[in-house]
């Protein structure tokens, strides 16, 4: 399982967000360049239609491959009341021929994108990951060098944390508390619920840029 919230930020404020995250997390950022291939099961395959993502981390000297399956969100009154989405998520590292393997099994490429940006991995009671990235589409199949932004001038911010059915309330609390620190720069909400950019972003960014993150927002 994982807990997740998302938000968007104008590219011009990303540098300020980076300064703020650097101050909050106390770790170095990691560069992010991930080719995401979204696959769907062929027309007759499976008890139900299924999909999965194959991620190729292009930032590594030798690209590494991961299979990711994101399941449905947790449901019920309890899930509605919390501001974080809790969902099943499984990942497995795999050898580089894993894409060919799933094609052979009867999966088809639905779409692909390139995520470029940076990530912070840190511990704040629980393990939290913040990624800030621009989402790019490829004009030609697999042409990651010629990718163009899907939403120019906007970047996606995603905060995730691994969780289990036993500890997710703790994880949600830790994440919510962390996200409050980012509130002057961006709204974070459950994926699929768009809250847009925040009106205070420009002022907060200017303040952060002027003193290098020393100000408590």
């Amino acid at each position: 399982m994982e807990c997740v919230v998302q938000g968007i930020i104008e590219t011009q404020h990303v540098e300020a967000l980076e300064i703020l995250l650097q101050g909050l997390c106390g770790v170095q950022k990691e560069r992010l360049r991930i080719h995401e291939l979204h696959l769907k099961s062929g027309p007759n395959l499976g008890a139900v239609p299924s999909d999965l993502k194959i991620l190729c981390d292009l930032e590594q000297p030798e690209p590494t491959w991961t299979v990711r399956h994101v399941g449905g969100p947790m449901r019920g009154a309890g899930a509605d009341q919390i501001s974080v989405l809790v969902r099943t998520m499984l990942e497995s590292k795999a050898s580089k021929n894993v894409l060919r393997f799933f094609y052979a099994l009867g999966y088809k490429l639905d779409h692909e994108l390139l995520r470029v940006g940076f990530a912070f991995h840190f511990h704040r009671g629980v393990q939290i990951t913040v990624t800030v990235s621009s989402i790019n589409k490829m004009l030609k199949l697999h042409a990651t060098d010629e990718a163009v932004p899907v939403t120019p001038g906007m970047q996606l911010v995603e905060v995730t944390a691994p969780a289990s059915s036993e500890n997710y309330t703790e994880v949600v609390a830790a994440m919510s508390s962390f996200c409050e620190h980012l509130a002057p720069l961006l709204h974070l909400s459950k994926p699929g619920i768009s809250t847009g950019v925040v009106p205070t972003a420009a002022a907060a960014a200017a303040s952060l840029m002027s003193d290098g993150g020393g100000t408590t927002l």
């Binding site: 499976g46 139900v48 999965l52 399941g71 499984l90 497995s92 795999a94 099994l105 009867g106």
Partner: peptide, 27 residues
Amino acid sequence: YFTLRSHRIVVEADLSIQNIMEKLQSY
């Protein structure tokens, strides 16, 4: 290790790939 002899493919993955296959309900 997943081996698909008909296509001459052998894939190395973490054990969690077995749980992913279970979730996919395709095989």
